[in-house]
């Protein structure tokens, strides 16, 4: 890709992304006193992450059974409140193991 074209895209992309984060963070400083509005903003991170995970995780590996293995292990490990890294690595390892099993089944 042409360097000037790339840098133009990059600038527009990065600057927009930055403003989306920085404008509310610098301008919106008041502590929210309304219980309802406060509850809304307390819930948003969890609903955003939930919506981003489902159904996207089912298609993350290109194979439903292996994705389900990763999902199941992630759910169990998080239920027991394991660390972020343990859950992420556990999910990857489970997916890899399931991929191995699938390969064995297909070979037979």
């Amino acid at each position: 890709m042409n360097i000037t074209v790339f840098l133009t895209y990059l600038f527009v992309m990065a600057f927009t992304t930055y403003l989306v984060r920085a404008l509310p963070f610098t301008l919106f400083r008041k502590k929210i006193t309304s219980k309802r509005i406060k509850a809304f903003f307390d819930l948003i991170p969890y609903t955003v992450l939930s919506a981003m995970t489902f159904p996207a995780i089912l298609y993350a590996t290109g194979s439903l059974p292996t994705a389900c293995a990763g999902l199941a292990v992630a759910l169990v490990l998080s239920f027991f409140e394991k660390s972020l890294l343990t859950v992420a690595v556990g999910a990857c390892v489970a997916t890899l193991a399931a991929t191995g099993v699938m390969m064995l089944i297909q070979m037979k």
Partner: peptide, 19 residues
């Protein structure tokens, strides 16, 4: 492909303990 599941594992690990 297997590494791609990692990011969702991280999302789950944030939501589940709170839920």
């Amino acid at each position: 492909n297997a590494l791609a599941v990692g990011i969702y594992g991280m999302f789950i690990s944030i939501v589940i303990p709170k839920a």
